[in-house]
């Protein structure tokens, strides 16, 4: 069972990370916040033991991604249209890039976010998402091609 201090630490440390990951999938803040809350509830229910903080972070991201997928697969979600909601205070170029990424198929959005924002390697992303490395590479490559078409400019090459 997690102590109150532990709960506070997890919220302080990971809330923003999880919110961004959820936002990249759900495309709006309120759904993303719901998913973060669900993920943290799972964290409390399961009370998993982690070897390292990286392991803990990866676990929380994976749970958040899975919860977002589950939510998106519900008939209710598919039949509703969320209100368009962007991040305030974005410059037009940032907004343009963000819109292009959010317009990608959801399977690409996750890998793009985890790679370019969270800084995970392809191998790490494969482990977090439970997919093969080749699948991640292919999805990265396709996502970058689609972004190139929509932004008329390369995203960035793989490191």
């Amino acid at each position: 069972m997690h102590s109150a201090e532990d709960v506070q630490r997890v919220v302080d440390t990971y809330a923003s990370t999880l919110l961004r990951t959820a936002f990249s999938l759900m495309k709006n803040r309120s759904d993303a916040e719901d998913m973060v809350q669900e993920a943290l509830l799972k964290y409390m229910e399961k009370a998993p033991e982690f070897e390292t903080p990286q392991h803990e972070r990866a676990w929380l991201i994976r749970v958040t991604v899975n919860l977002c997928r589950n939510r998106q697969n519900t008939a209710w979600f598919r039949k509703t249209v969320p209100l368009d909601e962007s991040i305030p205070a974005l410059e037009s170029e940032e907004s343009h890039v963000l819109e292009a990424v959010l317009a990608l198929p959801k399977k690409y959005r996750t890998v793009i976010h985890l790679y370019y924002y969270e800084g995970y390697s392809v191998a790490d992303i494969a482990q977090i998402l439970g997919r093969k490395q080749n699948t991640i590479l292919s999805q990265m490559s396709r996502a970058r091609n689609l972004l190139k078409q929509s932004l008329k400019e390369e995203f960035d090459e793989l490191r």
């Binding site: 991040i87 976010h113 972004l147």
Partner: peptide, 19 residues
Amino acid sequence: NCDKYRSAMDKLEAEEEWK
């Protein structure tokens, strides 16, 4: 472009009140 994506995402902070 990926820097622009990062800076856009940086602006998505969990609000203190919500946290």
